[in-house]
Design a binder for these strands. Structure first.
Length: 495
RNA sequence: GGGCCUGUAGCUCAAUCGGCAGAGCAGCGGACUUUUAAUCCGAAGGUCGUGGGUUCGAUCCCCACCGGGCCCA
């Protein structure tokens, strides 16, 4: 592809080369950044000189030529600073400055001054082109708006849109604060296999691949669960991992095929402990990252301050549907009653019906942070039987602004019961439930050495970032979300 | 998988109920020593997502396909 402007800039590159100038030189050393200069010199009046010589480097984002004078806008990673180029100082070099194009990367050395209007600027003594930009930038006022281009060419989004830089700044700080929080509690960070011969730990469809040397099919992990629990068995009593997991499912505003999960396991804890861990960690991260645990999400107030509401899964369904349900009711009765409410469930047992009812009638209304506790055993193959309630397990999901943000259990640590759960899953799979879990005998074997009672947790990190960054789709917090490849492209996610 | 919306200049957007597609920014030529989305003058820039169909004539209507978004399953 080529256009008039692209050709124009390529001929400028040729002209520079002919004149002996390298359009892509190395060796420029910046000594200052825009934000730092604004902070240091915020109290200068107008027409001030400082005698301070600095070197700044960045992308030329604006230029206003006034004959024998030209103003530029330089953007670096910290922000923007005005450049002041005048013929008195630069002589003939002013023409070369005026010849720069928006988008060019340049290095500038000069004195920190303020202009007549009081704008902090660097008066250019010397400048050099550091990298020529051959394509024009998006529109300077509206930025880049087309969502498809923003995702496919994220670098342009980051160059042109302050909002994109803000969101990914938040993401970076959330990652840092999560690590800090778990490390502060004595957790050890680990890395476990992404390539697995059997993808387990969640009820989801995996991506399949092949290991040539071993000549076996392999799968990308769908959860971190089973390896982290092996570490708990190994005596790593407090362990966490932040990693990418992959689920071969549809994309939606809340789903990307690969996403970032934080899982943690703590020996001798139960799900009550984990609820406190979650509400304290999330409100603490909010405080550290956005300055408060009382935030606004999509124009509605959202209070993340601990403690969060606890509500029973079964009671929520009963209230929302106006009927009495039980995890132990016959599946045919449950299906029939659900059908009367417009919910048709053809696979699985009563637990599956209850799960669908929950998603349909309860989930959308859970705005304030809520721990939904005590799930049906059937849909929770790794959670321990509830200490009081038959048919239920000690499991909770945390919902924030209607978004499922975490999932946690008092972990099942009885190997014989675990084997029975796997057998039940195998039965479900035989009945047509393609997301049912595969039996993992190696994991059962590990449990047979003795697994301590444990509280485990999974947090959807992308969703947490969505909430703290106040954006409505997960694609806004993933740098390169998956897209269908365009014809002729051959790299990158979905391209 | 189904429904709705969407694709026009490098970017942000118009318009055409079927009759030569037009603005701003960016770019090009010119003026300007204090601009802040600089301003002023001038001349350019288009496979209207792709392919078919209907029509004297299609960017517009119809069909299929491609990309994207939202909702539902």
């Amino acid at each position: 592809m080529s256009t008039e402007q692209h050709n124009e800039r390529r001929s400028k590159v040729e002209a520079l080369r002919s004149a002996g100038v390298d359009p892509y030189p190395i060796g420029f050393v910046p000594t200052a950044e825009a934000a730092e200069l604004h902070a240091r010199f915020k109290d200068l009046g107008s027409e001030a000189t400082t005698g301070e010589q600095v070197s700044v480097a960045g992308r030329l984002m604006g230029k206003r030529d006034l004959g024998k004078l030209s103003f530029g806008v330089l953007q670096d990673r910290s922000g923007r600073i005005q450049l002041f180029a005048d013929q008195r100082t630069l002589g003939d070099e002013l023409a070369a400055f005026v010849d720069l194009d928006l988008g060019d990367l340049i290095g500038v050395t000069g004195e920190v001054i303020t202009t007549k209007r009081g704008e902090l600027s660097v008066r250019i003594h010397e400048f050099s082109l550091l990298a020529k930009a051959l394509w024009p930038l998006p529109e300077k006022w509206h930025g880049l708006a087309d969502v498809e281009t923003r995702y496919r060419q994220r670098y342009l989004d980051l160059i042109a849109n302050e909002e994109a830089r803000r969101v990914f700044g938040i993401r970076s700080r959330v990652m840092r604060e999560l690590r800090r929080a778990f490390e502060g509690r004595g957790y050890v960070e680990v890395e476990t296999p992404v390539l697995q011969s059997q993808a387990g730990g969640a009820l989801a469809e995996p991506f399949q691949t092949h290991h040539n040397a071993l000549s076996i099919d392999m799968y990308l992990r769908i959860a971190l669960e089973l390896y982290l629990k092996r570490l708990i068995i190994g005596g790593v009593d407090k362990v966490f991992e932040i990693g990418r997991v992959f689920r071969n499912e549809g994309v939606s505003p809340q789903h990307n095929p690969e996403f970032t999960m934080l899982e943690s396991y703590e020996a001798y804890a139960d799900y009550e402990d984990i609820m406190r861990l979650v509400e304290e960690t999330v409100s603490g991260v909010a405080l550290a990252v956005v300055g408060s645990s009382e935030i606004e999400y999509q124009d509605r107030p959202l209070d993340l301050t601990a403690p969060w509401r606890r509500a029973s899964f079964m009671e929520l369904i009963n209230e929302a549907t106006g009927r009495e349900w039980s995890p132990e009711m016959p599946v045919e009765d449950a299906r029939e009653a659900a059908r009367e409410l417009g919910v048709d469930v053809e696979v699985g047992g009563t637990g599956k019906v209850l799960e669908d009812l929950f998603g349909r009638f309860v989930e959308p209304g859970l705005w304030e942070p809520t721990f939904v506790v005590d799930f049906p055993k059937e849909i929770s193959p790794f959670a321990r039987d509830h200490r009081d309630e038959p048919g239920l397990v000690e499991r909770f999901e945390g919902f924030v602004a209607g978004i499922e943000m975490c999932n946690a259990f008092t972990e099942l640590n009885d190997p014989e019961e675990q084997l029975r759960r796997f057998e039940a899953q195998a039965e479900a799979r035989a009945q047509g439930d393609e997301e049912a879990h595969l039996t993992d005998l190696d994991f059962v074997h590990a449990m047979e050495y003795g697994m301590p009672p444990t509280g485990g947790l999974g947090i959807g990190v992308d969703r947490l970032v969505m909430i703290l960054a106040n954006v409505s789709t997960v694609r806004e917090v993933i740098l390169f979300p998956h897209m269908r490849p365009l014809e002729g492209e051959a790299s990158g996610p979905g391209s």
